[in-house]
Design a protein around this nucleic acid. Structure first.
Lengths: 149, 149
DNA sequence: TTGGCTGCAAAACGTTTGCATGTCT
DNA sequence: AGACATGCAAACGTTTTGCAGCCAA
């Protein structure tokens, strides 16, 4: 964590930026929380330790993290975008239509599938996003349950 | 097309709605254009035949189509959402990061992959969205080309 | 005649930007 | 000192909503 912050600071400095206390607090809170946060949620969270941080700075900081490859923008169609750390290996998402829970999964076969599809269309893929929508274990509606309950 | 409009009208009537000229024009324009339109684009398009249609009605009509399963909401991160017909078989998208072109593809294997992943996580899938980002044939940047040009 | 549908304008929402001020180097 | 970062508030673009009038059933 310490090292990570240091590394990000270095990279920002290398591209002509300066470090700042607010930004460090935002970045730390972001990686500490390790979920899919909206700007609003992250702002509220980081404000608990520093009341005067404005959401504009949170927007700016997250954009910075995205630009440098440390964060990823997500959109599950809720209106506001969500952000997640981009440090761990690539994964995709399962989104529950009822409770909104978002869980992650890894499926290596998707990469090869992506390559195959792209090649067939003369396309050079860089990334993909696979979102599976449905119902999580606790939210399956009765008329979809196998036991017919 | 005639039949389709008729069918949609019936379904709307069945759920307590009434038909209207504006809505019919919007729906017809939507299915006729058969691309991924924003509300703004569709509004401008349909206004060519009827100057007084407001975009609020276009928003309301597209929501209606989505609710009844005739249209699908897309979001490629451009700010405004896009909509596509949901009449043809399911397909996914290739999005060019440079020129913005969106093309479609079908890959049956994705369905089985979806089932497999979901089952592993106690999840009941209904749909998915797979967007592959990269560069289309004409937009491949030099430093990604195989011929090293 | 009732109630949904309309266009318009205003409001709401997430996000970006301009600016004066503060902070890092 | 100089340049970048900040918080605030205003501006922005998209989407929703309130409303008075219209139109279909």
């Amino acid at each position: 964590m310490e090292t990570l912050l240091r590394r990000i600071d270095k990279q920002i400095a290398a591209s002509g930026g300066k470090r700042s206390k607010s930004r460090a607090q935002i970045i730390e809170a972001f990686f500490r929380s390790d979920t899919h946060l909206t700007v609003d949620e992250l702002t509220r969270y980081v404000r608990r330790s520093n009341r005067c941080i404005g959401s504009a700075t949170v927007y700016r900081t997250l954009k910075l993290l995205v630009r440098h490859g440390y964060a990823k923008e997500l959109d599950f169609g809720e209106g506001a975008k969500r952000y997640e750390s981009n440090l761990s290996a690539h994964h995709d998402h399962l989104i529950c239509r009822k409770c909104g829970e978002v869980s992650e999964f890894k499926e290596p076969q998707i990469e090869s599938l992506q390559e195959r599809v792209a090649k067939k269309h003369g396309f050079t893929p860089t990334t993909h996003r696979l979102d599976i929508y449905g119902y999580c274990h606790g939210c399956v509606p009765g008329d979809l349950r196998e036991d017919g309950a």
